[in-house]
Amino acid sequence: MSRATGWTILIVGVALAGGLLVGSTSLSPSEVWAGLRDASSPSASIVRDLRLPRVLLAFAVGGSLAVCGASLQALVRNPLADPYLLGLSGGAGFGAVTAMAFDFGTAWAVPIAAFVGALASVALVYQLSLVSGRRLDPRVLLLAGVIVGSFASAMMTAIITLSPVAQLRNAFLWLLGGLSGASWQALTIFSAYAVLPLLALLYQARALDLLALGEEPAQVLGAELERTKRIVYLATSLLTAASVSVCGIIGFVGLAVPHAVRRLRGPMHLGLLPLVFLVGGAFLVLADTLARTIVRPLELPVGVVTALVGVPAFTVLLRKTLR
C-alpha cells in the first residue's frame, strides 16, 4: 500500500468517525454505534436521520468539488483553478436562486437551473480571459472568474432581497454554504446528478495528464482536445451545480485538497482523482464537523471554515504560480 493510500484511509476514517460522533446532542460512541445498527435504539433518529445523511452529503459534495478543482487545474494549467474562483459556483448559485424565486418546480429542477448558470459563467469567464490574446493567461483567467463570480452574487442578492418567496429568507445563510439542510432526499438528488460527471472526468484522466503539457503537445500525444475540454467544462459545471443546489456556495475545497494529494501521489490523474475525491470528502466532513461545534449552540456556515483553510492555501499557491 502506498503512502498516499495509507494517509487517505486514515483521514477518511477519522473524518467519518468525527462527523458521526460529534454534534449538538452529545452521544457516546456506543450510542452512535447502537443508533447505526439498531433502528429502535433511542439514538437511532439522531444518528440515522440527522448525522449520517449530513456526513455522507458533506463527503460526496467535498469529494466532487475537489475533483472539479483537480480537473480544472489540469485543463487550464493553473494550480489556482477551482469552481469557486473560476466563477462556476457563483453562476450555479444565481441559477439556483432564480429557480427558487420563480418557483420553477421541485428540488430536482434546481440543479438544472444551477447547471445552466454555471455553464453561462464558464463561457463568460472563458471569453473574458481570451481578451488579452489567444493564449489563456492564468492571471486574466482568475480575474475574469472573480469578476463573473461577484456579478453573479450581486444578482443573487438582488433576487433574494426582492423575492416574496419565504424560503429564500434563509438564503443569505445558504449563500455561504451550509449542510444544515442535509437529508436523505438531498443526498439522493446530489448523487443522481453527480455520478455521471464523476465517471466522465475519470474517463478523461489520461487526457488531463496530457493537457497539463499544453494544448498542442497534448494533441500530438493523442488527446482529442475539443472533446476533452467540452467534457470537463460540462462535468465540472454539473457537479458544481448539484453541490450548490443542495448546500450552497462552498469555496476553496477544490484548491488545497488536489494540491496536497498531488504532492503525495504524483501528477497522474487516473490514480489521483479517486484519492482527491476521498480526501476532498473527508476535508468537507471535518470542516462541517468544526462548523457545527466550535460556536455551539450556534452553527457557522461551512463555507466560512473552508475559507479559513482555503485562503492560506491560495496564498501559498499564488506565490508558487506567479514566481
Binding site: R77, Y203, Q204, A205, R206, A207, D209, L210, A212, L213, G214, E216, P217, V220, L221, G222, A223, R262, R263, G266, P267, M268
Partner: peptide, 28 residues
C-alpha cells in the same frame, strides 16, 4: 513529435514523462 515548447509539470518524474508517450496505446 517533440514540440518546440511545452509546460513542465513539476511533480512529474522522467519515467512518468516518457510513459505519456504510451497513452495513445493505453486507451482511457
Amino acid at each position: 513529435v517533440v514540440p518546440q515548447r511545452e509546460e513542465v509539470v513539476e511533480e512529474m518524474t522522467v519515467d512518468h514523462a516518457v510513459l505519456l508517450g504510451r497513452y495513445s496505446r493505453l486507451g482511457a
